[in-house]
Amino acid sequence: MTSDVTQTADKTPTETPETTTGGRIYRPLADIMETGEGVTLMLEMPGVAADDVDITLEQRVLTIRGKVQPTNPERLQLAYAEYGEGDYERSFTLSDDFDPEKINAAVSHGVLTVALPRAAEAQPRKIAVTAS
């Protein structure tokens, strides 16, 4: 890890149809790693509370949606903006071998962590080969 100031990728809007309210939908940045037990996803969704996250798994497609609570300070006007506020949405196509009942999700400081454990029957089994 370098000690340099890190740069982030721009918050990119998703390629989804327009929203009815005219608000933007952003594509959250994701880190995905795989271990022997399953796959863990970490998505950056600043401004999203745990109650406002919606995760669905349908036909192998995992969809993650997060609703942002907009900051609307009283008696203050936006003078300078570098980031936009909007909901988050991103989908991933998974392989077949995840157990949808065991998906575990948690939000901490604006980062959503989704743990997808592999289904028991999909755990790799070692097959012994006997010499005859």
Binding site: T6, T8, M33, E44
Partner: peptide
């Protein structure tokens, strides 16, 4: 563990 994607960045 191995990375599938690493889009987030870290550091100071």
């Amino acid at each position: 563990a191995r990375w599938h994607r690493n889009e987030r960045s870290y550091g100071e």
